[in-house]
């Protein structure tokens, strides 16, 4: 019973963390569009996922994607920790490692990519 309710707490915490980091409160107050648009050099309108240049502004989808990446990175780390358990089978271990490793890497590089689109000078 204990572990189930703990898992429930985890899901609740992760979900609320996802909601807050995605900037939902900002979305509610400022009501930005879900996706923006920009014009290319020919004058054609094309969708833009990320609001460039403004640190204190965002599109809804952009925030959700970034928050998802935060959660993915965290989940990857938990998976990496769990795969060290002695009790689980080998295939499970390998798949956990693969999942943990890839999701940590994806999360890290994806958020960095978002950031360098958002702030063109961001190089680190």
């Amino acid at each position: 019973m204990e572990s189930v309710s703990k898992l429930a707490i985890l899901v609740f915490v992760i979900f609320s963390y996802f909601v807050v980091t995605s900037g939902v409160i900002y979305d509610i107050i400022n009501e930005p569009p879900s996706i923006g648009s920009s014009y290319d050099e020919k004058g054609n309108q094309k969708p833009a996922a990320i609001l460039v240049g403004r640190v204190n502004g965002q599109y809804i989808m952009e925030g959700l994607a970034a928050a998802f990446m935060f959660i993915l990175g965290g989940a990857g780390l938990i998976a990496l920790e769990n795969c060290n358990d002695a009790s689980i089978s080998k295939t499970r271990r390998v798949s956990l490692i693969a999942f943990g490793f890839s999701s940590v890497l994806i999360a890290f590089f994806a958020t960095r990519m978002f950031m360098s689109i958002k702030i063109p000078g961001y190089t680190s």
Partner: peptide
């Protein structure tokens, strides 16, 4: 003003993703 995701990443970087793990 309410916070956007950028602030979380900007101010916390990897710790924004590691933080739920520690919480867990």
């Amino acid at each position: 003003q309410p916070t956007t995701w950028v602030s979380f990443f900007f101010d916390l970087h990897i710790t924004a993703a590691v933080f739920p793990v520690g919480l867990w």
